[in-house]
Measured scan of single mutants.
Amino acid sequence: QVALSRTQVCGILREELFQGDAFHQSDTHIFIIMGASGDLAKKKIYPTIWWLFRDGLLPENTFIVGYARSRLTVADIRKQSEPFFKATPEEKLKLEDFFARNSYVAGQYDDAASYQRLNSHMNALHLGSQANRLFYLALPPTVYEAVTKNIHESCMSQIGWNRIIVEKPFGRDLQSSDRLSNHISSLFREDQIYRIDHYLGKEMVQNLMVLRFANRIFGPIWNRDNIACVILTFKEPFGTEGRGGYFDEFGIIRDVMQNHLLQMLCLVAMEKPASTNSDDVRDEKVKVLKCISEVQANNVVLGQYVGNPDGEGEATKGYLDDPTVPRGSTTATFAAVVLYVENERWDGVPFILRCGKALNERKAEVRLQFHDVAGDIFHQQCKRNELVIRVQPNEAVYTKMMTKKPGMFFNPEESELDLTYGNRYKNVKLPDAYERLILDVFCGSQMHFVRSDELREAWRIFTPLLHQIELEKPKPIPYIYGSRGPTEADELMKRVGFQYEGTYKWVNPHKL
Rank of each mutant, 00 (worst) to 15 (best):
R282Y: 01
I292W: 00
K426N: 14
G444K: 10
P476I: 10
I477K: 15
K287D: 09
E312A: 12
Q304V: 06
V306G: 10
N298G: 13
L419V: 08
K505R: 09
V300Q: 11
A396S: 12
Q380S: 12
E386F: 01
Q499K: 15
R345E: 10
M401N: 02
G328E: 14
M493G: 14
D283L: 04
Q446H: 01
G318H: 07
Q468G: 15
Y504C: 05
N343H: 07
R484H: 05
H448C: 05
R362V: 09
D322C: 07
E454R: 01
V366M: 12
D279S: 10
A297G: 15
S278H: 09
E271W: 00
K405L: 11
F409V: 15
A335V: 11
L267H: 06
D376E: 13
Q381T: 12
F378S: 05
D279T: 08
Q263H: 05
V373D: 08
Y481C: 10
R390F: 04
A358K: 00
V256D: 02
D372R: 08
K383N: 13
E386H: 02
K357Q: 02
T420M: 07
H379D: 13
E414M: 14
D283W: 06
T316P: 10
L387F: 08
Y434T: 04
N308G: 08
A332K: 00
E271M: 05
N427T: 12
M270C: 13
M257T: 12
V325C: 08
W346M: 02
A364D: 04
H260G: 01
Y481M: 10
Q258I: 04
M402Q: 13
H371M: 09
G311P: 08
Q392H: 07
I377M: 10
L339F: 08
E457R: 07
R384D: 00
V288C: 10
K426G: 15
Q304H: 05
K505C: 14
E470I: 07
K317H: 12
V301D: 00
V507L: 14
R254L: 05
Y434H: 08
V388G: 02
L471V: 15
T403N: 13
L353D: 04
D432V: 06
I477T: 13
F370D: 03
D280E: 13
K287A: 10
V373R: 05
S275M: 05
F410Q: 15
P431K: 06
G502N: 14
F370I: 07
T403V: 11
L417H: 04
A335D: 01
G318L: 00
E386T: 04
L439E: 08
C443F: 11
K475M: 14
E284Q: 10
Y500V: 06
P412K: 10
F498E: 03
D322V: 05
D310L: 13
D279G: 09
Q304D: 00
D280T: 14
M270G: 08
V295G: 15
E312S: 12
L265D: 02
R345A: 12
Y481S: 08
Q392M: 07
F498L: 11
H467D: 11
V366C: 12
L455A: 05
M402N: 14
S329W: 00
T324P: 07
P476R: 00
S278P: 12
N423D: 14
L417P: 00
R354W: 03
V373P: 11
N299R: 10
E395G: 10
M270W: 02
W459A: 01
R362S: 09
Y305A: 05
V300P: 05
L465C: 09
K357D: 03
F449N: 01
C443L: 10
P326H: 06
F442Q: 08
N411K: 08
E501C: 11
H467I: 08
L387S: 04
R367F: 04
Y340V: 08
V300R: 07
A396T: 10
F442I: 12
L339A: 14
L267N: 05
L353S: 02
C291Y: 11
L387P: 01
D418Q: 05
K363W: 00
A358M: 04
M402K: 05
D321A: 10
A315T: 15
Q369R: 02
A332S: 11
I438G: 01
A297Q: 14
M408F: 15
R282E: 04
H467W: 10
F378T: 06
V338Q: 10
N277D: 15
W506Q: 04
L471Q: 14
Y481D: 02
Q392T: 10
I477R: 13
H260N: 04
L339Y: 05
E386S: 05
Q446I: 10
S415D: 04
E314M: 09
V337C: 14
I253Y: 00
R460M: 06
I469A: 10
P309N: 14
C266P: 02
C291T: 14
E414T: 13
G307F: 05
R327T: 15
T330N: 15
K405C: 12
S278R: 07
K404N: 02
T331S: 10
P309D: 12
A364Q: 05
K287V: 06
V366Q: 01
V286G: 08
E416Y: 06
G318Y: 02
G307S: 13
G303K: 01
G375S: 14
A396P: 02
K287I: 06
Q381F: 09
T403L: 11
V441F: 06
D376Q: 10
R424C: 04
Q499H: 14
G318Q: 05
T463S: 09
V496R: 15
Q468I: 10
V288W: 01
H379C: 11
D372Y: 06
L492V: 07
D376M: 08
D310K: 13
P326F: 06
G303M: 03
M402F: 10
Y398L: 01
K429P: 13
R436V: 07
M408E: 04
C443Q: 12
L302R: 11
T324E: 07
D440G: 06
V428T: 08
N343W: 00
P326K: 05
C266T: 14
A315Q: 13
E284Y: 07
V397H: 00
D280A: 14
H260D: 03
K473N: 11
G485D: 00
V295L: 14
P476H: 00
L262E: 06
M402C: 10
N423T: 14
R327Q: 13
D432L: 07
P478L: 07
D432M: 07
L262M: 12
Q499D: 11
F449E: 03
F378A: 05
Q380K: 12
A274Y: 11
V306L: 11
S415A: 12
A358W: 03
K426I: 07
F378Y: 10
A315E: 14
A396E: 00
V450M: 05
V349E: 00
S329Y: 01
Q369S: 05
P350E: 02
T399P: 01
T463L: 02
T324R: 08
L471Y: 12
A269G: 13
V286Y: 09
K429L: 12
P309G: 12
E457I: 10
T503H: 09
I438T: 07
G303A: 09
V441T: 14
A364K: 05
P464T: 09
R362K: 09
N394H: 09
G356K: 02
A335T: 08
R424E: 03
